[in-house]
Design a protein around this nucleic acid. Sequence first.
DNA 1: ATTGTTTCGTTGTAAAAACAACCGACTTGT
DNA 2: ACAAGTCGGTTGTTTTTACAACGAAACAAT
Lengths: 241, 241
Amino acid sequence: MFGVNFFHAERQAFINESNGDRVQKYITILKRTKLFSGVSEEEIASMLSCLDARLRHFQKGEYVLRQGESLADITVLAEGALHIQRDDYWGNRAIVNRVSVGDMFGEAYLAPESGAVLNDVIAVENSTVILFDVRRIITVCSSACRFHAAVIQNLFYALSEKNRILVQKLGYLSKRTTREKLIAYLSEEAKRQNSPSFTIPFNRQQLADFLSVDRSAMSKELCKMRDEGLLAFEKNQFRLL
Amino acid sequence: MFGVNFFHAERQAFINESNGDRVQKYITILKRTKLFSGVSEEEIASMLSCLDARLRHFQKGEYVLRQGESLADITVLAEGALHIQRDDYWGNRAIVNRVSVGDMFGEAYLAPESGAVLNDVIAVENSTVILFDVRRIITVCSSACRFHAAVIQNLFYALSEKNRILVQKLGYLSKRTTREKLIAYLSEEAKRQNSPSFTIPFNRQQLADFLSVDRSAMSKELCKMRDEGLLAFEKNQFRLL
DNA sequence: ATTGTTTCGTTGTAAAAACAACCGACTTGT
DNA sequence: ACAAGTCGGTTGTTTTTACAACGAAACAAT
């Protein structure tokens, strides 16, 4: 089987047998990612072996990365959804981030000095991950890959962007009260989705974990804000007033 | 004057007049930065114009970057010290980070999609900043700069590393209580400095801002922890027991 | 239809943090 | 030497949060 093949033989190349149509599916996905933005499908196909691309599949609930593991690959989520989360010594779970299709993850641990991965990455849906050898990406190969330079630029901008997102989340968490955290997050999300009415990708427990507050206290605060006329909501649909 | 020259004529090249010894001083500094790690002084000198390097000087207390400004340069601190900080609508100041000599900063806002700078950057000492055009760095020039590839790798690893540091700080801030935040920060710092006895680069107010807690409450908690025998401290010298 | 599960709101209580105000020890500048 | 400013600790009060426990609604499985 295709999936099992790649799962158990990590170093196997992306394109190997007569799995052209399946490969084509992932090339189509890659084409839409930031990493390969501006690179045609043909060029992606020709770069896959150059970059040592590999596939791995994960069932819902499975660990994609565990705290303490080390990582030497750039990873892109091709199907499904992941949560990057962290459990401290007494079970407090914080969702550091949510990974959607096309996102990279784990790229913070690729520098030679950086040690082991600090978070768990877990599949919240059945998921497929594509891995690339980091050294092959950032080492410019002389001639073969014309569009290697474009991928390097994309990678740089993606890292820069992720950096900004982390800074943004630091902005939420540096607020002292639950209300301030909610206002910071929700108004940012409204701005991002360009509408005072928007959907968040979390249920209550997940949002509380994301903002590192107690769920019931957050629920209380949300309802208080609703009663004060600051906002309206139903499930994960919010509207700022 | 040298400094005034560069301050008022931003686009002026790094090497221009008979300022060889002053330039040499900054080349020596750059050689020790992560960005130019593994690149010789001669090679740095030859790359400076290629990368459109510029100098700017700031007095203690001056703003290096303001919230809302945009940025198209990679910035390296050559002398002095900066604080990256954020004031919210009601004056709560959070020190997002401290920038030391050799560090890059502001690299989160370089992606075309990323908007304005979200934080203030302020000089806490008289400081000198070196700026490089980001597009010139990540666009591989065909022949001129042999060591351009090394700089690209360094830049990538630096961004990755900074990413990890942000994730780490998120780890501190996602703790719910002041005590937990202190323990997380201090034990991490002890690990980093490889000793249970270590110095932190903050005074109390700055540490409180860094961890986004109230100074007096933090002071109270520190003393309580000291009385419980968890740690000892004097000024910014700490020892975990 | 009923049982179990998940999600979300609610309540009361205990713990923790913010806030404000103040004090003493040290620096710094004149 | 002295005034002004900085820094860190302390205290008391108010506000906020965590925590635990419960209940209703929605949904899925048997």
